[in-house]
Amino acid sequence: MVGTKKKGLFFRYLIAVVLLLIMIFPYIYMVLNSFSDWEQVDKTLFPTDFTLKSYEWLLGGGEAVIPRPWLQAFFNSFLVSASSTLLMMVSAVLVAYALAKIPFRGRDTINNLILFQMFFPAIILLIPTFLVIQKIGMYDSYWGMILPKAMSLWAVFMYTNFFKAIPETFIEAAKLDGANERQILFKVVLPMSKSITTVIFLFLFMERWTELLWDMLVVKSDSMLTLNVLLSQMFGPYGGYPGPMYAASVLLTLPIIILFLIFAKKFQEGMQFSLK
């Protein structure tokens, strides 16, 4: 009896591990091909000859005919994603705190407007948002990529729900101690929101880091392209360099995976809360 139970357990883990390996196989394939000899790229599932040529090509700017600034693109991606995410977090915290904890006239109206906008199909906004950015002179600039994505209604929604669940007694107690709203927000409410903040931060950053359509539309200068856009343009229609393509994919994917793994534990705690 004990034996069969152990055996059953072993098979459960075996199935889980095999399934997990299948799911992350595209990543494995990507990494292997980025180190693989150019002759073997996309020719075999498990390459046998390895080289650093793809990375040298990538970091050296490619072949002279098509000089592509990959490190610059990496920096651009980081700058745009970090600033955008930071602005989204700060604005969401402020708006959500007001909606959840400050009673003021007009609050319900703003709340309803946010819900209305959230469920409004965003597809309609693509062209006119592009025109707004053009009109205010932000076409082909970092701001053009950052500002339209400086606010996340989803983040506002998540924070509002979380803040509402914080008992009033904590806030009353802080008020009795003479704390003002700003101090309550920074000293009481935010320290209680660490895990939800991790969840929101990771989702926003991941989404911003992998954005294609908007960044592709609003920036034309080679020096300002994000890594995702550069990768798309370089290897999309033109193709031709599969080895470096996989190296560039690693360059794009690795930082976000590392970032995620660093916060993985807090992320899970936060998810558990936000799904309840």
Partner: peptide, 27 residues
Amino acid sequence: IGFFLPYLASGVVSSLIVKGLLSYNSP
């Protein structure tokens, strides 16, 4: 956490990988 990792992939990257996996001479 392991099963969540594909969510981190950029659509560009996953498309390019699939393009490679499905190219004419692919395994």
